[in-house]
Design a protein around this nucleic acid. Structure first.
Length: 496
RNA sequence: CGGGGCGUGGCUCAGCUUGGUAGAGCGCUUGGUUCGGGACCAAGAGGUCGGAGGUUCAAAUCCUCUCGCCCCGACCA
């Protein structure tokens, strides 16, 4: 409603990001709770769409949803040493239950708990506990669960959607009889994430394996999908972990195999969070505000009626409502913007900053000609096209499909223009000078020491070791920093 | 958690140096005129100046503490 200024990307990318979120009313800092956010209805509607797309695919691949406690006994966290170490610093802890009125009349804490609870930063431990209870035979496997929930990580520095104290996500947890089966699951879910990013968010991603240094605390291997943002930085879009038997051993999750031999289960976990909304914003949005791919847009079409007097108003509103009814019959969400106090131009800006993919203008001239003026969110403001009232659903559907496709292609082209293979340290440093970043495919000698030295020197990190299927490698070479032998190129970038 | 910046009607900010009863623009409400890319006129409503304590006859302003937000770093995904 109120006019919002959006800082241009070129001027201040971080400020632009915040402005887009505010202008589209996606979320805001809670303020009263440090580092936490309030997701406003428009933001949550996008999340619900993402959830629906993921959830459908989880079910199609045999998973069931369940729910586990928000609070985890502190002792659980301690059972897997690496895991505990990895999350120790960011755990919020519940130490008291109940309140009472103190001597000064103020509310104070009452009963101290014998064993404190940790507010879940992730649920491997508590789910491990229940897996141990539920799994006894190879016939109980595989166990394929997922939960949609919120988690808390006490981050020192937060940014809306990208890193907040509390965030919403899904975490899949599975147990298998063999390592091979678990490994298959890890890749299957990684591909689910890739599919949703490509087909729904219209954001191209690169699948890869994390280095030991970047691995999930407690995992054997961590895989990820990495997406390029418009400033050339990378954002980890989702992760899928091969937990090996680490949690099986920590929580004594065992089963008897066909031969009657007892063994620890092989587990996986995989997750994607509200951070996906951050990826969406930074991949597609522009200086005019939010840009949403049609498949995620809570509102697909905004119809703006244009009138000068009551007679025209009646006429254009009637036509607009009719169009809306037809489009809704096709399953689209349509708003007829009949607000009296606002002129058409202001309505255009309003829907644009909210990311609505398509606007239809319906004025007296349009009613006379039986067509509406259609304006795609990603087209130039002068670039409007006529859409006939007749079979409007077919035409609008085609335009929305086209926008979905254009967004993906635009993002893909941007990434192609900003991904480079480099073989000299000087070139490498030049790319990451100041605040610069691209996707750099370069050789690395495989040691954590070199990885950290490169980070120290350039702030770029190894985002992943791309899977062979990504087709980004071209054989062995020499490490860009040390000159030592390297088997393959890895992906470097600054990251969110 | 270290360094820096900022908290004043819904929003952007002025006022603070040099204490003296809180301002502007936008937005909002009402009425009217407008309406094909951010309209205009008129009349209104709206603020314990982030919070607590202190100094003072008097604090948005000075001092101390504290909370929150933003940026850089460290940590993290």
């Amino acid at each position: 409603m109120s006019e919002q200024h959006i800082t241009p990307r070129a001027k201040d990318y971080a400020q632009w990001y915040q402005d887009v979120i505010a202008a589209a009313q996606l979320a805001e800092a809670a303020g009263v709770v440090r580092g936490c956010m309030v997701v406003r209805p428009h933001g949550w509607a996008i999340w619900e769409k993402i959830q629906a797309e993921l959830d459908r695919r989880f079910k199609e691949t045999g998973h069931q949803n369940a729910a586990f406690p928000l609070l985890i006994p502190l002792s659980f966290l301690q059972k897997e040493a690496q895991h505990a170490e990895g999350f120790a610093m960011e755990c919020a802890v519940v130490t008291h239950a109940g309140l009472r009125k103190g001597a000064d009349g103020k509310i104070e804490l009452k009963g101290e708990l014998e064993e404190p609870y940790v507010v879940r930063p992730t649920s491997e431990t508590i789910i491990g506990h229940f897996f141990a209870k539920w799994i006894d035979s190879y016939r109980d496997l595989p166990m394929l669960l997922n939960q949609w929930c919120n988690v808390m990580r006490w981050e020192l520095r937060t940014r809306l959607f990208l890193r907040t104290g509390e965030f919403w996500w899904q975490e899949g947890h599975t147990a298998h009889a063999t390592h091979a089966e678990a490994q298959e699951e890890v890749m299957r879910m990684l591909d689910v994430y890739r599919e949703v990013y490509h087909d729904v968010l219209a954001v191209p991603v690169i699948r890869g394996r994390k280095t030991a240094n970047e691995r999930f605390a407690g995992a054997l291997e961590t895989f990820c999908v990495e997406a390029m943002m418009q400033d050339g930085k990378s954002l980890q879009g989702a992760t899928s972990h091969d937990l090996g038997q680490n949690f099986g051993k920590a929580f004594n999750v065992t089963f008897q195999n066909k031969e009657g031999v007892r063994d620890f289960v092989w587990q996986t976990s995989w997750g994607a969070s509200t951070r996906m909304i951050g990826a969406l914003i930074m991949a597609h949005s522009d200086d005019g505000g939010l840009v949403l791919p049609p498949r995620l847009a809570p509102i697909h079409v905004a119809i703006v009626p244009i009138w000068k007097n009551d007679a025209e108003k009646t006429q254009v509103l009637e036509a607009s409502d009719k169009l809306a009814r037809e489009l809704r019959a096709d399953g689209l969400v349509v708003k007829v913007d009949d607000r009296e106090a606002m002129r058409p131009g202001e309505k255009y800006y309003d829907w644009e900053r909210k990311g609505v993919p398509l606007r239809l203008e319906v004025g007296p001239r349009d009613v006379a000609s039986g067509t509406a003026m259609a304006k795609s969110r990603i087209a130039d403001s002068k670039d409007k096209e006529k859409v006939p009232f007749e079979n409007v659903g077919v035409h609008v559907g085609a335009i929305l499909d086209r926008i979905q496709k254009q967004l993906f292609e635009r993002a893909l082209a941007f990434r192609a223009a900003n991904i480079v293979k480099l073989d000299t340290w000087a070139d490498f440093q030049a790319v990451f000078a100041d605040t610069g970043s691209k996707f750099v495919l370069a050789h690395w000698d495989g040691t954590t020491e070199t990885e950290l030295a490169i980070k120290e020197a350039t702030k770029a990190t190894i985002r992943c070791i791309p899977l062979p299927e990504e087709g980004l490698d071209d054989g062995p070479g020499k490490c860009i920093k040390t000159g030592q032998p390297s088997a393959r190129r890895v992906l470097f970038a600054k990251n969110y």
